[in-house]
Write a protein that binds this DNA or RNA. Structure first.
Length: 897
DNA sequence: GTGATCACG
DNA sequence: ACGTACGTGATCACC
């Protein structure tokens, strides 16, 4: 169809060669973390088929091929395995979730009107290599689609290799020019590079100590492997030379393994490969079997209407409130709000009931009826909900209490898998394989068009469906929590915590508008001074807030050295500017400007915007089901990142004051809680001893890793470095990261780490074993069995895998610390009540709890809070709590014993 | 909507 | 050889 171009110029025929196995693997693993979402009605996994289909659509549209072929591997045994026993020997067995999809991928290919081919004893690569060669000679333009960079050796002026970059549809095209630019070698030379460096995934070794960089430079220098070995004797004596000589046989063997055949006994002819489009009928049938609704509707085949099971409901009115009498032991309740911020949201309707009777209404005022109020407040009747905290807060605004929440679908789902935390009930239900409720977007629309349906039928059905989903998912989720040993985490920690957090949010924290407005005008003045000074120094006016414009001024106009680049241009981050400080006075001004601008926009103006006009307080929302570690987060506004480290910012805290006269702000924080958790979970004897002896842990660490004698002093610099190492350990250490942080060479950092692990062998063992645990079970756990899945622990990509490994080390530590403070928070209320204290817990900042309290309570409060926090859990090292008090959050002074 | 930056633990 | 510290949220510029 496109043999003739726009102007009648004869264009080359387009040939598409697809590396079937490679793309299938790629598609499968690209969606591996949503494996269970891609299954059809029979439980067949479909991610690889789905991905393959996406890829096919994409390349057919992109290349309009005249001919196409998908090559598959024939089996495990090939001429390469006969040559070399271990070839591909390190590969894990293909998961059954993938193998079951292979026949369907073949059907997909066939029904799409594309030839497929396999050849015993040969790999798909060799079929492709052979056909690409033939095609070059026959004057085709060929594109090879693969996920395997090895195939780039097939690149010629007529043959392009498109290697998947992200997912299966985003590819990078390798041409001879691109290879020269990117790798510095020709496609044919690339084979020899591989021969020298080996390939860990195909499990052939290459020459010892030679990686990609070295291999490339050797081949560049000598032209080829043959060239190298002709001149190997002329090389300067070195370990590398020895290795090259000793391992010549291996290198030659690897060269053979790496070389893709261009002369395999392929029996198909190019002329057999003509692409004439798909067999629509057969494809439709396949999609039906696979339940690929979106592809069906793309084809114009009517997708069967998503069959949400019909639901019965009754509209609740002032006249039929007696219907409520039937709920004696339990009910589902849901108050519907369209806005995320439930402090402000206008509720639009509600549903309550049981499977045999769902009662719905748009009339929020009905909730004021004593019949409903008493039902919801009745401690003897269990309530099942979605997002208990949101319900508690919103109902509180209506003057309604909600007691005895037993099941929170959102919370349970989050505990089972931190990623399954959508605040859209419909979407969340889908993840749990429940499909009889629509996502909110479908019913309400999105953006400006979002609205409650006028049609009662539509709206009420949605409400009833939601309630039913909560009901239906209750038992299965409880069963899973039980199987995961997470029932106690759910029942004893997270569910009670939701009520504690609701109360903190409702109470809010008093913020003085006058303090902030005063700061605002001061900072405005300061900013305009700095602005003028910067324009003067730069010789022109520009937007200082634009990193792009700033980059041009600093690095082009003023010609300052470029220290770091970002994806989009020059980096102007603080770490960079600090290095340039001495080279141009404007840099310092910019740093000052940045600091002030941040304080002004985020904290002064930002906080002023969210002070509630009625009570002059700020009511944040804690997100209880968001973080991957079990920490809380805080939004609208974030009260967990109010400045403290730098004086100018710290003054913001002057605006945070007690809400009642004669009260003060009181704060207690855990000292080094994460390191104490590490000492506990790792069982390291030395670290435990340091904590048990009440040492300054960073100084004690410095003593050990710098091998100080008892009479030698720890210098501030030693302590600083030891502290950085401690942080590094908690974060899942790497020499590079540590080096960056304390500005030493990676080599120096590495010796610090080695020295640390020698002194704290238990910690070393822990880092090893937790990563192994993650590999074996696919997740890691905190002390309360909070769970985080780490699918990337198996990634082939170094970055992804390394990240997962560091996460495996960090999550049990950060997460257990989060568990501990949550337990303390739950016990705090009853403890305060037992001492008849009026004090209120207002904020949680990860390891710190902030209260307001009458002055005369402070002494008792300190005892109670310390006791509750200290004893939250029993670890093999003591927990330590430090307290401060003052008239504002800014003025807190440490309370000494 | 995304990326860069910077505030916190 | 590879290229990073762990966990968050708000603001701004820019597409």
């Amino acid at each position: 169809m496109n043999t003739n171009g726009k102007w009648g110029v004869k264009m080359a025929k387009q040939l598409l060669l697809i590396d079937g196995n490679s793309i299938m693997f790629r598609a499968f693993f690209a969606m591996h973390n949503q494996l269970e979402r891609f299954t059809n009605q029979d439980g067949l996994h479909t991610a690889a088929i789905y991905g393959f289909k996406l890829m096919l659509d994409h390349v057919l549209a992109e290349y309009h091929p005249d001919a196409a072929l998908v090559a598959f591997d024939a089996g495990k045994v090939t001429f390469r395995t006969q040559l070399f026993d271990d070839y591909k020997g390190s590969r894990d067995k293909t998961p059954s979730e993938l193998t079951e999809q292979i026949p369907y991928v073949r059907r997909l290919v066939q029904d799409s009107g594309i030839q497929s081919y396999e050849l015993s004893n040969y790999e798909a690569d060799d079929i492709i290599g052979t056909l690409a060669q033939e095609a070059d000679q026959a004057g085709y333009e060929t594109t090879i689609i693969t996920g395997d960079r090895d195939l780039t050796q097939l690149v010629t002026p007529q043959t392009t290799v498109a290697v998947t970059k992200k997912g299966v549809t985003q590819t990078k095209d390798y041409t001879p020019e691109y290879m020269q630019e990117k790798l510095g070698v020709t496609p044919v030379q690339y084979i020899d590079v591989k021969a020298l460096m080996g390939d860990s995934s195909d499990n052939y070794p290459g020459v010892t100590k030679i990686g990609e960089k070295t291999a490339v430079s050797l081949i560049q220098e000598y032209g080829s492997l043959d060239g190298l070995y002709e001149h190997v004797q002329d090389m300067k004596p070195s370990k590398r030379k020895e290795n090259l000589i000793n391992e010549e046989k291996i290198a030659r063997e690897c060269q053979t393994l790496a070389t893709i055949k261009r002369d395999a006994p392929v029996e198909v002819q190019l002329t057999d490969l003509t692409y004439q489009g798909p067999d629509q009928e057969a494809l439709a049938e396949l999609y039906r079997e696979l339940n690929f609704q979106s592809f069906l509707s793309q084809m114009g085949v009517e997708a069967p209407v998503p069959t949400v099971k019909p639901v019965q409901y009754v509209e609740l009115t002032a006249d039929n409130l007696s219907l409520l009498d039937q709920f004696k032991t339990s009910l589902v309740f849901h108050l519907e709000m369209l806005e995320a911020n439930y402090h402000l949201a206008q509720p639009v309707g509600f549903v309550l009931g049981r499977p045999d009777c769902w009662l719905v209404s748009r009339d929020i005022n009905l909730l004021q009826k004593p019949e409903i109020k008493q039902l919801l407040a009745n401690d003897g009747i269990k309530k099942d909900v979605f997002n208990a905290k949101a319900q508690l807060v919103a109902l509180h605004r209506l003057g309604v209490s909600l007691h005895h929440v037993a099941f929170d679908l959102l919370l349970a789902s989050y505990l089972l898998d931190t990623n399954e935390n959508s605040d859209d009930l419909g979407l969340l239900a889908q993840v749990h394989d429940y499909h009889d409720v629509q996502p909110d977007e479908v019913v309400y629309g999105k953006g400006a068009k979002q609205a409650v349906p006028e049609d009662n039928e539509v709206f009420y059905t949605h409400l009833a469906n939601k309630a039913r989903a909560i009901y239906e998912l209750r038992q299965p989720l409880f069963d899973q929590l039980k199987a995961n040993e997470q029932l106690s985490l759910y029942t004893d920690i997270e569910l009670p915590l939701s009520a504690v957090l609701a109360q903190m949010e409702i109470d809010g924290v008093m913020v003085k508008t006058s303090t902030l407005t005063q700061m605002q005008s001061q900072l405005t003045e300061r900013l305009s001074e700095l602005e003028q000074a910067i324009y003067q120094a730069a010789g022109e006016e520009f937007n200082i807030n634009s990193t792009k414009q700033l980059g041009v001024i600093l690095f082009e106009k003023l010609k300052l050295p470029v220290i770091k680049k970002t994806k989009t241009g020059y980096s102007t981050a603080v770490s960079v500017l600090e290095k340039l400080r001495d080279q141009a006075p404007v840099v310092d001004l910019i740093l000052q400007y940045r600091q002030i601008a941040k304080i002004q926009s985020t904290y002064v103006t930002g906080l002023l915007k969210v002070i509630h006009p009625d009570d002059h307080k700020i009511h944040t929302r804690y997100l209880q089901t968001l973080t991957q570690t079990g920490r809380l987060s805080s939004v609208d506004p974030n009260l967990q990142n109010i400045p403290v480290r730098v004086e100018e910012g710290r003054r913001i805290r002057q605006a945070f004051v007690p809400s009642e006269a004669g009260w003060e702000i009181f704060s207690s924080d855990y000292s080094q809680v994460e390191l104490r958790v590490l000492a506990h979970v790792s069982g390291d004897q030395n670290m435990q001893a340091d904590f048990i002896n009440g040492e300054d842990i960073h100084a004690a660490t410095a003593r050990r890793i710098f091998h100080l004698l008892p009479d030698e002093e720890v210098t501030p610099n030693m302590r600083r470095q030891a502290k950085a190492v401690n942080f590094g350990i908690v974060y899942g250490i790497s020499d590079y990261g540590l080096a960056q942080n304390i500005n030493v060479s990676p080599k120096q950092a590495k010796t610090f780490i080695e020295s640390y692990f020698a002194e704290f062998p238990g910690v070393h063992d822990y880092t090893k074993s937790i990563v192994e645990t993650a590999r074996q079970q696919g997740y890691v756990e905190t002390i309360t069995h909070r769970r985080r899945y780490l699918p990337d622990i198996h990634a082939k990509n170094f970055n992804l895998r390394s990240f997962a490994e560091r996460t495996a080390m960090n999550t049990p530590i950060q997460g257990s610390a989060a568990d501990i403070i949550k337990i303390a928070m739950i016990r705090m209320g009853p403890a305060l009540a037992a001492h008849h204290l009026q004090a209120r817990m207002l904020l949680q900042i990860h390891d710190e709890l902030v209260f307001e309290a009458p002055k005369e309570e402070l002494a008792t409060l300190r005892q109670v809070v310390t006791e509750v926090m200290d004893s939250a859990v029993k670890l093999s090292v003591p927990l330590k709590v430090e307290s401060k008090v003052g008239p504002t959050w800014y003025d807190l002074k440490k309370i000494e014993d």
